[in-house]
Write a protein that binds this DNA or RNA. Structure first.
Lengths: 240, 240
DNA sequence: CAGAAGACCTGATCGAGGTCATACCGCGAA
DNA sequence: TTCGCGGTATGACCTCGATCAGGTCTTCTG
């Protein structure tokens, strides 16, 4: 694959996007030329729910949380986006307003591409379209798993599931098999992901700690016993 | 559009599939030639959760419910598919096992196409791929709305939302503005869609009846005051 | 027609988890 | 060094909706 490497080092972020993996260097270059770079500080908003669809984003550095809110201020994190992941695609693909708010969880660098540019690129790269269909199928599947979890599983299960999703996405496996979630998350963030409250999250997490399933250290969470957590969730046939 | 009409009357079902709307007659014919027809009686299963992905389905007649189950037998209807709608696409598009079970809610006729046939057709019709991306974006959006509803809204809201989704999908508007949900659904079905129990559904529905929002007649539900129901749900910016 | 099975309905009870109040700790700013 | 603030922690209480335990009404079948 080294032969595909672009001259421009900034294009390299695209390598981490599974969706773009198979594109040739010249295609990546062209795609990159259509993009602009955006830097946001922690807490800033990329877009708000109901905004008109403008751009598709790729996370280059940092983390972005995608959330929905109620009038009374409660929020729920629908998804998290990490380097190499895209977000804002629902709005770009179907042309309706963004279905949720995107907020920088840390200082972030983003690549963005407009709807029209992306679609014209897509027309020239039909294989990319198939790739996107696969990706969207996978996201739909995960969303449906979330629906099932919310509808039928108890909080501990949902929190266990949240931890496992985090470990899969940003987990660093240490020598002794434990998984380090390399990200400073508050209990509130985890609560918002698992659709519960801080208090409950704290209680469940300290319970998990007592059972030796997890550990916390300086705000970071360490998963000690992934297998046991997985037993709790057992998402139908999928491995999660 | 009449010029596109195929000689084969059976192809006509494809007209009702938004995704296929813009295909030319010869393309529709070719697509139809790749399909086989399946008839199932009420209650039969099209596929089960965890089955290997075989086919993509289009509903020709009848209704299909897509559900997820727990070990203890409770089920949750993730989606309903009506004539002109496709289902089973997550598995076909990403190649993983079906994420849920599909069961005929009435006697049904289905058109089915294998994964390989569909993908080869897709390669020859790149515009269809864009269409599918749009559709998947919309589904993802709806799934996320469901997630929000489950995470943050009370049962009445979820039931109201369920009624509105049904009215949008299978509702027949009568002269006096009331909407007839032209489908025999049990309270259990509605409960499974709103992720609650029969008892609660019954209580909420009789409450809605008292408030003059809905009416029931021979198992069918009539929506008397759509506006008031919509006020309850107010799904962010979307019209639902 | 009797009887059974399934859908619909209602009241009583219970429990998971949300809410509220309070307290502690670490840290940066004044 | 003290103040304030944000995150963490824990106990007391309460509410929503699930669960259980009865009904009735309708439809289907022998």
């Amino acid at each position: 694959m080294a032969d595909k490497k672009s001259d421009d080092p900034k294009v390299n972020i695209f390598w981490k996007v599974p969706m773009f993996e198979f594109l040739e260097a010249e295609e990546l270059d062209r795609l990159y030329s259509l993009c602009s770079t955006e830097k946001l500080a922690k807490g800033e908003y990329v877009f708000l729910e109901c905004d008109a669809p403008r751009k598709l984003y790729v996370v280059e550095r940092g983390e972005v949380k995608l959330l929905k809110q109620t009038e009374d201020g409660r929020e729920m994190i629908v998804e998290m986006a990490y380097p190499g992941e895209i977000f804002g695609e629902e709005a770009i693909f179907d042309g309706e307003p963004y279905p949720m708010t995107a907020q920088a969880l840390s200082d972030v660098e983003l690549l963005s591409i407009t709807r029209t540019d992306f679609f014209s690129f897509l027309r020239d790269n039909p294989d990319l379209a198939l790739e996107i269909i696969t990706e969207l199928g996978a996201r739909l599947r995960e969303a449906q798993n979330t629906i099932r979890a919310l509808a039928m599983e108890r909080v501990e299960y949902r929190i266990a599931r949240t931890l496992l999703i985090l470990s899969r996405k940003v987990g660093v496996v240490e020598v002794d098999g434990v998984i380090n979630i390399d990200l400073v998350l508050t209990r509130q963030d985890i609560a918002d992901m698992a659709a519960t409250t801080v208090e409950t999250t704290i209680r469940v997490l300290s319970n998990f700690k007592k059972l030796g399933l997890v550990e916390t250290e300086k705000g970071k969470i360490i998963i000690r016993n992934k297998l046991e957590l997985e037993n709790m969730v057992s998402e139908g046939c999928t491995t999660l």
